[in-house]
Amino acid sequence: MELILATAIGILAASGVWLLLRPRTFQVIIGLTLISYAVNMFIFSIGGLRTGADPVLNGGDIAHYADPLPQALVLTAIVIGFATTALFLVVLLTSRGLTGNDHVDGEDGTS
C-alpha cells in the first residue's frame, strides 16, 4: 500500500511541477491543483496508513481510531487550497484582460 501511494504522490507531484514550469497560465493553475493533491496525500499519509480504522469515537480502545491530526491539517489545507485556486484563477483572468494574452509573464514572447 505504502509503495503504491508513494509512487502516486510522486507522479502527481511530477505532473504538477512540469505544468508549473509551462508558460501558459491555465497550465500553471492545473499544475498547482495537481501539486496540492500530492501535498494533501503526503500530509495525510505521514504517520502511516490505516485501513478500516474508526474515524468517530464509539467508546472503544484509542488504538483503534484513525489519527485525527493529519486529517484536521489536510481539511484545512483543502480549504486554503480552494481559496488560493480561486484567487489565482481571477488573477489569471485579470492578467488576461489587461495584457490580452495568457502567458504567465503577460507578454507573448517566442514561447
Partner: peptide, 17 residues
C-alpha cells in the same frame, strides 16, 4: 526536473509512511 522532483517526493513520502 519534474521527474527528479517526483522521485524525490515519492521517496520522501515512502520514508515518512
Amino acid at each position: 526536473i519534474a521527474i527528479a522532483v517526483g522521485a524525490g517526493v515519492a521517496s520522501l513520502a515512502y520514508a515518512a509512511m
